[in-house]
């Protein structure tokens, strides 16, 4: 596979995954805040600030946020490089240049996704379409992932796409955790108990489509500890950082089975980070959430740069 095309496929996977998490985060946060238990977490400013934090949008840190403005910029603003619509545009652009390598079915689903997003009327989106648009985005990404898994050869092309998908997933999940962690702190202040039992953990689980399964496993109201344990360390939770790392390791091994012994290789770095998370317990994290989240984000970006250096721009 050409290095340039591999780069494109990697980013195709990343942009598809990114669009999904952004859309789901907006959707769940917005609608669950409408009847949230505390007045802080019910306020518009609170939920909009949370969205801005998660997406990393550059907006003035003081001053009142305007709802339609924030929704527009995150959702359908063609001039905002990190908007959902631009993620989808980039996903298609990358798919297009690798069109000869992927299946017609996969390309068609990405292309339909693109046309859906660019044609979505902005006025409708910011006034009444938030639920509709974000729900459709998450559903269409699920279809696309199905086409990736179901119509491609599971060879190096597939491995590159899945590397992108899973790396982005781990990154987005960590960013969502970060945003909700800040929300919980903000909503409950420094109160130990309040923070521990904050309503924001429920929202966090819903933002990652993991609430129901988490309840099944723990059979108790989510707390900061159980939620973070589930979303970071549980290898069976398909959205957990651990699960993503396992997937990343699996796919780098398809790509590069022999280089695992070379300590400068991506495979070696991924193996090392994965082992670190595999043998971590929630007690190791519980006292320094903030630092741990920052470390996770930087480990994940290190994996990204190592992959790019080894395969795309050698």
């Amino acid at each position: 596979m050409l290095a340039r095309v591999a780069d494109n496929l990697f980013w195709m996977g990343r942009y598809i995954e990114r669009a999904e998490h952004m859309a789901r985060f907006m959707n769940v946060n917005y609608f669950s805040s409408l009847d949230a238990p505390s007045s802080t977490s019910q306020s518009r400013e609170f939920v909009l600030r949370s969205m801005v934090n998660m997406t990393g949008l550059s907006m003035a840190s003081s001053g009142v946020l305007k709802e339609q403005d924030v929704l527009y910029r995150i959702g359908t603003d063609p001039g905002e490089s990190s908007s959902i619509v631009n993620s989808i545009k980039n996903a298609r652009g990358n798919a297009q240049s690798a069109r000869d390598l992927i299946s017609t079915e996969l390309y068609e689903s990405i292309n339909k996704f693109y046309h859906f997003a660019v044609d979505y009327p902005t006025g409708k989106f910011v006034r009444t379409g938030l639920f509709d648009f974000t729900t459709q985005v998450t559903e269409m990404t699920a279809i696309i992932r199905g086409k990736i898994r179901g119509t491609l050869l599971h060879d190096s092309i597939y491995a590159i796409i899945m590397l992108g998908v899973n790396l982005e997933r781990a990154l987005q999940i960590t960013r969502i955790i970060q945003a909700k962690y800040l929300d919980a702190l903000h909503a409950e202040g420094e109160q130990e108990e309040g923070f521990r039992y904050s309503y924001e953990w429920t929202t966090l689980l819903k933002c990652t489509e993991s609430y129901d399964m988490m309840r099944r496993l723990y059979k108790k109201q989510p707390t900061s500890t159980s939620t973070l344990e589930f979303l970071i360390l549980n290898p069976n939770c398909p959205r957990s950082v651990m699960n993503s790392l396992n997937q990343i390791y699996r796919h780098i091994s398809i790509l590069d089975p022999l280089r695992i012994r070379d300590k400068d290789s991506s495979a070696f770095l991924i193996g090392k980070i994965r082992a670190e998370y595999q043998f971590k317990s929630i007690e190791d994290i519980d006292n320094n959430h903030r630092e741990f989240i920052t470390e996770t984000l930087s480990s994940l970006s290190a994996i990204g740069s190592r992959i790019e250096g080894e395969f795309f721009y050698y």
């Binding site: 596979m1 050409l2 290095a3 340039r4 095309v5 297009q96 069109r99 000869d100 390598l101």
Partner: peptide, 19 residues
């Protein structure tokens, strides 16, 4: 579209000059 179609159906790489 045609270039990618030909590469795909022949099962060969589609390259640009910079590759």
């Amino acid at each position: 579209y045609e270039h990618s179609y030909l590469a795909k159906t022949m099962g060969v790489e589609l390259v640009e000059g910079r590759d």
